[in-house]
């Protein structure tokens, strides 16, 4: 379980391995905020290898999206499986984020 951070052009790609839950949400927040403070403005968080996101994880994504938008940037999400999409739809967070089927699609659109 962890986060892989890489650069793709001028976008930052964060791949979530395992789960995004109350036990590791602060680690993700810290990593993205460090990139934001370093000047990055385009972010994609990819969930290809993510089994589960709890409400704390959803909350940290909302918090990060707000902070990135305040700096004139954008946070996009990609590769949500069926269960994760259900959670985003139930909480209406699918209306808050641009969500793509693949990370490539998210990165290409920036």
């Amino acid at each position: 379980m962890g986060f892989q951070v890489s650069q793709s052009g001028d976008a930052t790609l964060v791949e979530v391995e395992g789960q995004l839950i109350v036990g590791n949400r602060q680690e993700l927040k810290q990593q993205v905020l460090e990139q934001l403070e370093g000047g990055d403005r385009k972010f994609v968080i990819d969930f290809s290898n993510t089994g589960y996101i709890d409400s704390s994880g959803l909350g940290v994504l909302v918090s990060l999206s707000k902070k990135i938008r305040e700096q004139g940037g954008e946070l996009r999400l990609s590769s949500l499986n069926e269960d994760l999409r259900t959670l985003f739809e139930l909480t209406k967070l699918d209306t808050l984020f641009r969500i793509t089927d693949t990370k490539e699609e998210a990165l290409e659109g920036f």
Binding site: G59, L87, T91
Partner: peptide, 22 residues
């Protein structure tokens, strides 16, 4: 209700909502 427009940008408050939905 965390899905109301005034609450959608709050970072917390979705746990009980998800329990009730699911």
């Amino acid at each position: 209700d965390p899905t109301e427009p005034e609450n959608i940008l709050k970072s917390g408050g979705r746990g009980l909502f998800l329990m009730r939905q699911l």
